[in-house]
């Protein structure tokens, strides 16, 4: 049973990682990161349940809190960029090179 959860988590993680690589909208990239973090949560919870250890559930709470904090930071940065350019595409941002 746990194997299936693990496989699902690995699939979610891969989808998230691919999303970051191919999508160019900062908001969508950001959603992909959330997908990856949730894959982590799924792994932690299912492993914790299979092993009968509470550490997995405990770690999940911390991951959730950190993910929430990162949402705030990420949206703040995206809003700051929107004030200059009406776009969230990362390709439009290329002032720094070399």
């Amino acid at each position: 049973m746990t194997d299936w959860y693990m496989l699902l988590a690995a699939a979610l993680f891969t989808i998230g990682a691919m999303g970051i690589l191919v999508r160019r909208n900062a908001l969508v990239m950001f959603m992909c990161v959330e997908l990856m973090l949730n894959a982590v949560n799924l792994t932690l919870v299912s492993a914790g349940r299979a092993l009968g250890s509470l550490d997995g559930q405990l770690a999940t709470f911390f991951v959730l809190v950190v993910a929430a904090a990162e949402v705030v930071i990420g949206l703040a940065i995206i809003v700051a960029i929107f004030r200059h350019r009406d776009t969230a595409s990362v390709d439009e941002l290329s002032e720094l090179k070399g």
Binding site: F13, G16, A17, I20, A26, M29, F30, V33, M36, L37, V40, V66, E70, I73, G74, I77, I78, A80, I81, H84, V90, L93, S94, E95, L96
Partner: peptide, 17 residues
């Protein structure tokens, strides 16, 4: 802004990994 976005996206990606 660009510095911050680049750092953020790659930073959270690395956290996830």
């Amino acid at each position: 802004n660009e510095a911050s976005l680049k750092y953020f996206i790659l930073g959270v990606l690395s956290t996830a990994m």
